[in-house]
Amino acid sequence: MSKVNPDFVEKISGFTEFNAYACINCGSCTALCPMGIDLLPRRMFRHVMLGFEDKVLENTEEVFSCLLCKMCEENCPKEVPIVENIKSIRWYINRDIFKLGRG
């Protein structure tokens, strides 16, 4: 059981506005990923939007494995800004979890 937390997405949106609401869960991104990362970005984004912080953090390694090659973004039928969203998640983890960059 995971509780939906609408405020979490606001925390992620500190870098640029996190935006994956147009996602229709078609799975093109997962299928095209050259890293073969099973989780990104479809389910990861869903976890962000639903506010499942623990699930996002469980997959920190996947978040940082992404090459930002934009293969998924170029082929996204709904034009979700996938790379910007991943950068947002990294930014959040670096700042709030790893406590980096704030001296």
């Binding site: 059981m1 995971s2 509780k3 939906v4 869903r46 639903l50």
Partner: peptide
């Protein structure tokens, strides 16, 4: 509301 999210492998979620 409790629902199984079919787009996330049937994960049970709870929405206030």
């Amino acid at each position: 509301v409790k629902v199984n999210d079919a787009l996330d492998g049937g994960e049970e979620i709870e929405i206030g």
